[in-house]
Design a protein around this nucleic acid. Structure first.
Lengths: 206, 206
DNA sequence: ACCTGAACACCGTTCAAGT
DNA sequence: ACCTGAACACCGTTCAAGT
């Protein structure tokens, strides 16, 4: 009876289920059950599970919108640019674990816009490419650590306060606020970029 | 018959096999086979696989040595401190993937020494704790991204040149050198820290 | 063309039974 | 006390067979 299932159906279901229950939760059989079909049926549309994950990563990436980051000084626009990425990954939690395997670093027009912002800040074009790479590795790396914390036995989420954790380590308990920590990381990086801009303006080659 | 196998034997074997073949390669049956035993036997010594991984992480962490980072100006010592961590994780590749699940952030005496270096640079003690956290999240995050790159289909390692990759993305090929990229990230972060120190000296509260 | 049913080779884990 | 053998409930994947 046929044609009830499309590639798009499978990708949409996989994306939603992963965002809701986590990447590890989703198996071929669960995905199939959700689609009202047997696991083998999916293999007529996709060669394997990885191929589905690649399409999910593509779909999530296509939804990334950074149009908010178009006003203010270059440094403020860059901060807004980065915060768009953070907001996007918070809305698509599975993108972190998925991207780690299938697209470890950002690319495409988001990267081009980011590099342009670094040029606007005063970096020469070739250095802007390198500094962007360093910046985005920091930011994406932060997301990976945050994702690890989410599954850690040492970190206990505080109910009602997303992004805040009690941390138990070496018999001491401390508090972790990933939101303010992220702001601190961005400040460190951008202050470092300001220094690089100052060096570039002074005509040095670091 | 009996007492041929100890917890230490299992942990040593697991650590070596993971460093050699990767974390995902190691299964209970392969571990057992390497120990000349059946998979069920391991469960007399450990409750489950995770418990072995925790011990492996502990064992690797115990080998971390940062005694090289004791000379020079505070900033140079901090750079050396961080590079000890990178060298250590390059010698124990499985620690990256393992630590991500079982110890996402650094702790213990390595952290205390790092915080002291920030105080030596001129930060007040409470801010040193926070800035250290930001710094270590950047550094560990970098390792996670690097580990993802190692398994990515877009990144092709250049033979004979560890840490260097050809990157294929959007029909363009570029070059990636994780060593120099790491140096750039550290420079960005430490320049940012210098700015924080300058603000602290000026008596501001950021 | 599209899907089912049943299998295959793997997992981690359990546990009676052996010694 | 320590280990084996055999099973259990799961994986991803394949593929003849159905319609």
């Amino acid at each position: 009876v046929g044609a009830g299932l499309t590639r798009a159906d499978i990708v949409v279901a996989a994306r939603n289920l992963m965002n809701e229950h986590g990447v590890e939760w989703l198996t071929m059989r669960r995905l199939a059950e959700h689609l009202g079909v047997k696991a083998g049926a999916i293999y007529w549309h996709f060669a394997n599970k990885d191929e589905i994950c690649v399409d999910v990563v593509d779909a999530i990436e296509a939804d990334l919108d950074w149009s908010a980051a178009t006003t203010g000084a270059p440094r403020e626009r860059l901060v807004a640019h980065i915060e768009c990425l953070r907001a996007h990954w918070q809305q698509n939690p599975s993108a972190v674990a998925l991207g780690r395997r299938f697209r470890p670093t950002a690319a495409g027009r988001f990267t081009e816009a980011g590099q342009q912002l670094l040029i606007d800040m005063g970096l020469p074009a070739d250095e802007a490419v390198e500094q962007w790479r360093a910046l985005i590795w920091m930011v994406i790396g932060f997301f990976y650590v945050e994702d690890g914390v989410r599954h850690s036995t040492h970190h206990h989420p505080i109910e009602g306060e997303p992004g805040r954790y009690h941390v138990d380590v070496d018999d001491r308990r401390s508090l972790l606020d990933t939101g303010s920590l992220f702001a601190r990381v961005v400040t460190l990086a951008l202050d470092g970029l300001d220094a690089a801009v100052a060096r570039a303006r002074a005509g040095e080659r670091p």
